[in-house]
Design a binder for these strands. Structure first.
Length: 494
RNA sequence: GCUGCCAUCGUCUAGCGGUUUAGGACAUCGCCCUCUCAAGGCGGAGAUCACGGGUUCAAAUCCCGUUGGCAGCGCCA
C-alpha cells in the first residue's frame, strides 16, 4: 500500500477563513492518522484577486494553528515543486497536457465572446435548461479557426465533455453520486490570457503531485464530474474524493463575512487558543462513538477517520467555542497561560496594556484568576486592579457594600479597625488573614460577609475578583493598608 | 430555472432494524460547594427523530415521494 498524500490548496485571495481551516485540518488529521503526507499548494491562478499578502497571511495562520505541511512553500521537495500554480504555469507544466488534449481532439479553441456565452446561458435558462455553453466552436474547421485568428479573435480552450452517459463519483463520505453528462457543458480549461482554470490546473497538479485523496468542501462536489472527465481523457488514475459538509452561519447560510468573524486571525486577536479552534472545528462534521468532546491533537490524529465524518451541514456556534477555549486554558498551567498572554499582547500590539506591571505579580495574579479566563483578551480586565496606583472604585460596588443603608453601619468600622489591626499583623499569609477576618467578625458579632465584602471593595474597587485573602497576600501588607485608607478617606471622611 | 447534497433537543452530535421511557456536549434553569465572580458537583427542562407513504413480526434506522434548507451552475477558485 502506497503512502497516502493529501493536500490543502487555498487560493490567496483573502485571509484564511474558518471553512478553509476546517478543510486543512481534516486533511492534516487524515494524513497524520494514515502516516501519509500533507501538502500545501497555493492556487494563485486568479491574477486579479491573488495577492502576496494573502499568501503570507495564510502561511502564518497555518503555522499558528500548527497545521504543518510536509511539502509546500518553504518546504519544497524537488520532485513536486514548485507549489505555486503561477510558477508552475511559468514552467509550462499545464501547457504540455493542454496540447495533449488538443492533439487528441479532446479540447478545442473557442472564440466566443463573454457576451455571446452569457446570451446562450440566459437562453438555455429561459427554456428551463441548465445554463451552459452550447458548444458552437466545437466543430470549427481548421480554415474557420485560421479565419478567426486572422480576424484577431482571442480564444479560450474548452474541454469536450462527453455528450451522453453519466459521470459517477464514488465519494468516501457520501457514497455514489451520479451526474448526467448532458447537463455539463464544455468548460474552459485555459483562459484567454494563457492561464489554466481551476478545474484543469487542479487535476494536473493533483496528478503530478501524486495526490491520493482529495478532501475538500461540499461546495466543490459539482466540479468533481468535470475533473473526473479530465482524468479520464488523459488516461490518469484518479484520487479518491471525500466531500466535507459545509459550515453554516446562525441563519443557515454558508458561513461568510456577514456573520461576523470568519477569519482565523480575528479569532486569534480575540484571544482564542489554537487548540480550542482546532478542537471545536473537528467537532463540526466529525464525532466519535462515545461523543467525546475534548481532545488533544495527539488523540485527534489517533482517532480521526473519514468513516466518522458527517454528511449534514453544521452551524458554527461561538458559545461552544468559547467554552472550549476556557477548557483549553484551564488545561494549561498558569505559567503557560502567562506566556500565551504575552504572545497575544505582542501579536495584537497591545504590549502597552501591561507596561509598568510587575511581571512576577502578573504571573501570580493570573494564577489566582486561572479558571475564570475564557479568552486571553479578558486577562487585563481581570487583574488590572493589582497594578493601578488609583483604585477604580466601581460605583455600584461602592453603593452596595460600603454606602448602602445596611452596609454603612458596619463598613466604616470594619475598614478603620482593619487598617489599624492589619498594621500590627506579622503573618500576612492568606490563611492567617482569613483567620483574622473570621475572628474579627465573631468579636464584633457581625457576619463574615460583612467583613469580607467591604474589604474586597476597598482593596479592589469591585465586588468580583479572586479569593479575597489570596488577593491580599499577593498585594502585600503595605499596599492593602494603603488602599483601605484611601477608601476610608474617599467614602467616609468627606 | 436546472442539477446535486442534506434533514435526530435552540446548537454540535450518538444512533448504522429489536438492547431506546432516543444517549452525550454547549447554551439555558435549579440546587450544592462557597468570602464575591468563576470553576467544580448534582439535577431539571428541552427532539411527536421534517412530513406522507411503503418494506418488515419490528423503523430514527431500509425504500419511494413531498416539503424545507443549502450548494453549484464564470475566461473565480
Amino acid at each position: 500500500m502506497d503512502t497516502i498524500r493529501v493536500r490543502f490548496a487555498p487560493s490567496p485571495t483573502g485571509d484564511l477563513h474558518i471553512g478553509g481551516v476546517r478543510t486543512a485540518l481534516f486533511n492534516y488529521l487524515y494524513s497524520k492518522n494514515k502516516n501519509g503526507k500533507f501538502i500545501l499548494r497555493i492556487e494563485d491562478t486568479d491574477e486579479v484577486r491573488s495577492t502576496k499578502e494573502s499568501v503570507e497571511v495564510i502561511l502564518s495562520a497555518m503555522k499558528w494553528l500548527k497545521l504543518s505541511w510536509d511539502e509546500g512553500p518553504g518546504n519544497e521537495i524537488r520532485e513536486y515543486a514548485p507549489y505555486y500554480q503561477m510558477e508552475r504555469k511559468e514552467k509550462h507544466i499545464y501547457k504540455k497536457y493542454l496540447d495533449e488534449l488538443l492533439n487528441k481532439d479532446l479540447a478545442y479553441p473557442c472564440y466566443c465572446t463573454t457576451e455571446e456565452v452569457d446570451a446562450m446561458r440566459k437562453e438555455a435558462q429561459k427554456n428551463k435548461f441548465p445554463p451552459k455553453y452550447d458548444g458552437r466552436c466545437r466543430h470549427l474547421s481548421v480554415e474557420q479557426r485560421k479565419q478567426k485568428e486572422v480576424e484577431g479573435k482571442t480564444a479560450v480552450i474548452r474541454f469536450k465533455m462527453p455528450q451522453g452517459g453519466s459521470t459517477v463519483l464514488d465519494d468516501l463520505i457520501r457514497g455514489i453520486v451520479e451526474f448526467d453528462n448532458s447537463l455539463l457543458d464544455d468548460f474552459v480549461i485555459m483562459k484567454a490570457n494563457g492561464v489554466p482554470t481551476y478545474n484543469f490546473a487542479c487535476v494536473v497538479d493533483d496528478y503530478l503531485m501524486k495526490i491520493t485523496h482529495v478532501l475538500r468542501g461540499d461546495d466543490h462536489i459539482s466540479n468533481t464530474p468535470k475533473q473526473i472527465q479530465i482524468y479520464t481523457a488523459l488516461g490518469w488514475n484518479m484520487p479518491r474524493f471525500a466531500h466535507l459538509s459545509m459550515i453554516l452561519g446562525p441563519d443557515g447560510a454558508r458561513l461568510s463575512k456577514r456573520h461576523g468573524h470568519t477569519s482565523v486571525l480575528e479569532y486569534r486577536k480575540e484571544g482564542y487558543l489554537q487548540e480550542a479552534l482546532i478542537n471545536y472545528l473537528v467537532l463540526l462534521g466529525w464525532s466519535t462513538q462515545d461523543s467525546q468532546q475534548i481532545f488533544t491533537i495527539e488523540e485527534l490524529i489517533e482517532k480521526f477517520s473519514l468513516e466518522r465524518c458527517g454528511v449534514s451541514p453544521s452551524t458554527f456556534d461561538t458559545a461552544k467555542l468559547l467554552w472550549l477555549n476556557g477548557e483549553k486554558i484551564r488545561a494549561k498551567t498558569p505559567l503557560e497561560v502567562y506566556d500565551l498572554f504575552v504572545d497575544w499582547l505582542k501579536y495584537t500590539n497591545n504590549e502597552s496594556l501591561i507596561s509598568g506591571w510587575d511581571k512576577d505579580l502578573l504571573k501570580q495574579a493570573i494564577a489566582l484568576e486561572h479558571d475564570k479566563i475564557r479568552l486571553l483578551k479578558e486577562i487585563p480586565s481581570l487583574v488590572d486592579f493589582f497594578f493601578v496606583k488609583e483604585v477604580d472604585y466601581k460605583e455600584d460596588a461602592v453603593m452596595k457594600t460600603l454606602l448602602s443603608e445596611e452596609s454603612k453601619v458596619f463598613a466604616e468600622m470594619v475598614l478603620v479597625e482593619s487598617a489599624n489591626r492589619l498594621l500590627e499583623k506579622e503573618d500576612f499569609s492568606a490563611s492567617s488573614l482569613e483567620q483574622y477576618a473570621r475572628d474579627f467578625a465573631e468579636e464584633k458579632k457581625i457576619k463574615t460577609g460583612q467583613v469580607f465584602h467591604p474589604l474586597r471593595v476597598a482593596i479592589s474597587g469591585r465586588t468580583q475578583g479572586p479569593s479575597l485573602f489570596h488577593m491580599m497576600e499577593l498585594m502585600g501588607k503595605d499596599e492593602v493598608i494603603r488602599r483601605i485608607n484611601v477608601a476610608i478617606n474617599k467614602f467616609f471622611r468627606k
